[in-house]
Design a protein around this nucleic acid. Structure first.
Lengths: 345, 345
DNA sequence: CGGCATGATGTAAGCGCTTTCAGAAAGCGC
DNA sequence: GCGCTTTCTGAAAGCGCTTACATCATGCCG
């Protein structure tokens, strides 16, 4: 049993097969013709020695890492698995590896964790990368694709995102038209979060289209998560603000809204209608079923990878891919949910 | 603006700072003393040139990749984010990177995606790695930690797992003692899945302890996911098998059970009590709230990383870490859920 | 039958770092 | 001041691959 220090290298293989290391390299990479019989001998030697090329050496010599990076900030959130699944799926079919880095703000970064030194390109979700680093990477022409974030001034980086505004309009219009709601709370996401900005714009447009005056007092500032949503709702109610519906910003926040409302004995949807955004897994499981917007998150991941691969191949990528969103009606808005979600509980 | 082909290297830095590349390397790695003033000059040069060491070169020269790998098979499943979160958190505080590979069976692997050539050690979840590959890695003394899977015969690999059997016993005993259920269906997980094996053992022990005869007819074979659970329940009901409770194998499966039961107009928990396993996010959100076992999944991830790092440092790792599980009572078993889960909806 | 494509293989020069080893500079006691 | 140790720094040898280029048989044409 060989110790770890003596793993076989390409020269061991070459020697055993009676060829030069160049030939071994050629049969491994298959880009230069090698006589069939020789190739067979090499492959045998590889198998016998259980040889696996050291990735670092390949990368160093070929200047290609064959892996792409994903920078992400919020592993929590029902959102993440969907996105990752799409990315993984598309990546596998293209032979790239995935390096994931999630930027926790708490640990100051010493060595640069992810970038041009260990990946061929980067998938960046929302604002998980500091502007400075983004500029640096862009400056050296490093392949980059953004998700749910338009690039800063002057940078031409492909973006994949969803129809946030349309989704919000559908949601709010539904609340107004079908259920006669007029005092609709909007629970924003984090400051500077683009999804949130667009959803708010949609919210305002929908109000306007129905001649409802925008009321600053109905805007609450959450973080796209359960806890902050819960607290914001508590505050709102404590302040005695009246409302008959809540647009929760995203599904995670909707959970917090549910909790606060139930604790205050307000019935959903009779007293207060609630809608979310994203249609994550649990949206159909909670009670009442959450009316929300289906965002093709998985598809965003797939498309992001596709565009990045375009870039990696030196092809032109699309500047902007906008994914359609779709209204998913369940019961939390007041509907009876006839038909549709047959998988709902 | 430098083109991608002319990224600065360590020699550029050395030249600019008026030192040798060895010195630059020393201040980067900080393991050999360098006079403060010189070090400062080097750091300045690094900053000015925006130099980032190429990871591949470092890896090749130092023979350490500074990244650990995670091999996983089921990105789907409410399970995954919890695990990943724990792993990420622990990893960051130790300065390692994470390379994730999820083994989809559909794409035959050409190049070895993950292993000794691109990581310093591997975290392996359940049976995501083929035995042959596991043996190979073990054979070359490669640092390995398994999660939720005991190592094959003769291999001494550290394992992190949870008290599956105890959890199952708690669940089933609760069903029997508090709710008088006696015909309890057990919905298994996939063949060979260790969690499933142990849960079944707990199920049988609990029955035995209460003098209930084990009935083969009450065992259904799911896949730890919603769809197979749904189908299995349909089959069971179609076959006219009687039961007053279902132990769903895991929470994902419980969802499928809920759906099948509701579709058949059987009331949970009055007609049929349902319990799950894992306590994933949505368990508290569904209606009725799912009685389940809280498995410290995140902690499993953290602990796995800790053990792997022990190995990487040449220290001894624990052969087996067993995490305690805990009964979480909500309403799906028939309880009224007084107290406890104050975050439940 | 000589000259020349043609295609398979070998030779060797890196890729950009780390690290050993040796040398230079500086401090110390006698 | 002389030899000694003690620090710091530089030269250079790899790490294990890829790939441009050279080499060497072939086969083919005129």
């Amino acid at each position: 049993m060989p110790s770890k220090s003596s793993l076989p290298t390409i020269s061991d293989v070459a020697q055993r097969a009676g060829v030069s290391i160049a030939t071994v390299s050629r049969v491994i990479n298959g880009n230069t013709p090698v006589v069939a019989e020789t190739a067979q001998r090499v492959r045998l030697a590889i198998k016998e020695l259980k040889f696996v090329p050291r990735a670092a050496a390949q990368v160093l010599a070929s200047r290609k890492t064959n892996t792409i990076g994903l920078v992400f900030s919020e592993i929590r959130g029902a959102f993440f698995p969907h996105l990752l699944k799409g990315i993984e799926a598309e990546l596998h079919s293209s032979g790239y590896e995935l390096l994931i880095y999630s930027t926790h703000s708490d640990h100051p970064i010493q060595r640069k964790p992810i970038g041009e030194h260990n990946t061929d390109g980067l998938l960046v979700f929302t604002t998980s990368l500091e502007l400075e680093e983004l500029e640096r990477l862009y400056g050296i022409n490093f392949p980059l694709v953004l998700m749910h974030e338009t690039p800063p001034q002057g940078m031409e980086i492909p973006v994949i995102t969803i129809e946030n505004k349309d989704g919000a309009v559908m949601l709010v219009s539904h609340l107004i038209e079908k259920h006669g709601r007029r005092r609709i709370v909007f629970l924003r996401g984090p400051e500077g979060h683009e999804d949130s900005e667009w959803r708010e714009r949609g919210y305002r447009e929908a109000l306007e289209a129905h001649k409802i005056v925008y009321d600053e007092g109905l805007i609450a500032r959450g973080e796209f998560d359960e806890d902050s949503a819960f607290e914001e709702m508590q505050k709102l109610m404590a302040a005695g603000i009246e409302f008959d519906a809540v647009f929760a910003g995203d599904d995670d926040a909707a959970i917090g809204v549910y909790r606060a409302l139930k604790m205050a004995n307000r019935i959903i949807p009779d007293d207060v209608a609630v809608v979310g955004f994203d249609d994550v897994q649990f949206a159909r499981y909670i009670s009442p079923g959450l009316t929300t917007i289906r965002a093709p998150i998985e598809e965003v991941g797939r498309e992001a990878v596709r565009q990045l691969i375009c870039l990696l191949n030196g092809e032109q990528a699309q500047r902007l891919v906008l994914m359609r969103t779709e209204l998913v009606i369940r019961e939390s808005c007041g509907c009876q949910n006839k038909g549709g979600g047959e998988r709902d509980l």
